[in-house]
Design a protein around this nucleic acid. Sequence first.
DNA 1: TGCAACTGTTACAAAGCTGTCGCAAAAGGC
DNA 2: GCCTTTTGCGACAGCTTTGTAACAGTTGCA
Lengths: 228, 228
Amino acid sequence: MTAQPTILLVEDEPAQREALAYNLRAEGFALLLAETGAEAELIIAETPPDIILLDWMLPELSGIELCRRLKMRPETRAIPVVMISARGEEVDRVRGLETGADDYVVKPYSMVELMARVRVQLRRVRPASAGVVLEHGDLRLDGETHRVHRAGVELHLGPTEFRLLATLMERPGRVFTREALLDRVWGRDIYVETRTVDVHVGRLRKALSEAGAGDPIRTVRGSGYALG
Amino acid sequence: MTAQPTILLVEDEPAQREALAYNLRAEGFALLLAETGAEAELIIAETPPDIILLDWMLPELSGIELCRRLKMRPETRAIPVVMISARGEEVDRVRGLETGADDYVVKPYSMVELMARVRVQLRRVRPASAGVVLEHGDLRLDGETHRVHRAGVELHLGPTEFRLLATLMERPGRVFTREALLDRVWGRDIYVETRTVDVHVGRLRKALSEAGAGDPIRTVRGSGYALG
DNA sequence: TGCAACTGTTACAAAGCTGTCGCAAAAGGC
DNA sequence: GCCTTTTGCGACAGCTTTGTAACAGTTGCA
């Protein structure tokens, strides 16, 4: 199906977990679940999520400690962490934010607001999924209307080509491996040949070339593709 | 890195403004002040701040409307907006966040927490430690974009040369034996001739020499190679 | 139902990179 | 200065990676 943004929910208490999971799914997230900090670390190492929703209080490795660790390592630092906590004191809130959390929500929270705050983070990491207009060079992609223009000319892209371009435009310059693109464009648990990516990049290039000169997609031999 | 980060404070009420201004200055921000939305727009166009702290209630152009406008234009969209408001209802908070605000703080707020939240936004704009960019002398290698520059000139490296340079740059000055390089660059269980390292160092040197004078790679007779 | 658009796979060619060899040059050792 | 060891480097065949066209299967829609 569609390639949904992924969120990792780390919460040990079943009732909370269910409520959050339900709402996150309704928001259109692909959900990863962890009950302990250690489990969360494993999941993150294996399939890095787009966002992490993290309870402060966890058995063993606490949420705040996990957050600190994540923000220490360069490869996980960029993943937004929304911390949830029953600890509502000013010191705690500040401590959470200082530790590297990107937002801090106190229990009991408004589910609607929490979802809005998660969406704020999503906007940062996956702007196209959040319905934002992306621009790069003479390219313009509207995540809401799904329209793409190059140098003012509207292009017709197939759904896969659109998601591929959106993914590349979300982080211009960054090199995506074919595997990463399969994850983000095709979806986590879909199996397709690695080389299929090449074919779609080719198709996207062809479509882009109809409306402007120069190939905005860069092939990085041995690694993957990048925009610009 | 320029001296201080700049923050634009948009607040029409003198008492609030003073209190915030005082604390923001204490945080080390260079302060820009605006009392109305229109004024704020002018200032932003002229000297774009790193962060905007925005009161919802303003005469004429309201804070939320200004926020919406800012987030519509690509050139100002990246500037984080922290919205402050007396409107604490869930609908208002969600509306603020939906409009594009990066955070939403309800009056009366804790000044300490607000400052922490501002710092969170600052962290995003100015990442403390560069992600995966390695620099040494006039060399610059970006692990995210896979681009290598010497003295500003981009150079083209094959995958092996790239990994070799990255390995050397990770620990400038340190001498790597050929075996160590085979391990790190080629992989642990690949068998290739030791002398192959020499060839690739040669190729790397040649590529580097196209963009700058002087050989940054040092041959350590009897041991191996090192950078600088 | 039939059609048009889209998708994933495959095969093949072109491009680019890699590892090895051999010899020349350089660096030490004495 | 002479001999030994180590390194630099050009050449090249072979291999890997990438671009692309073709094709068959699906899907959505009128």
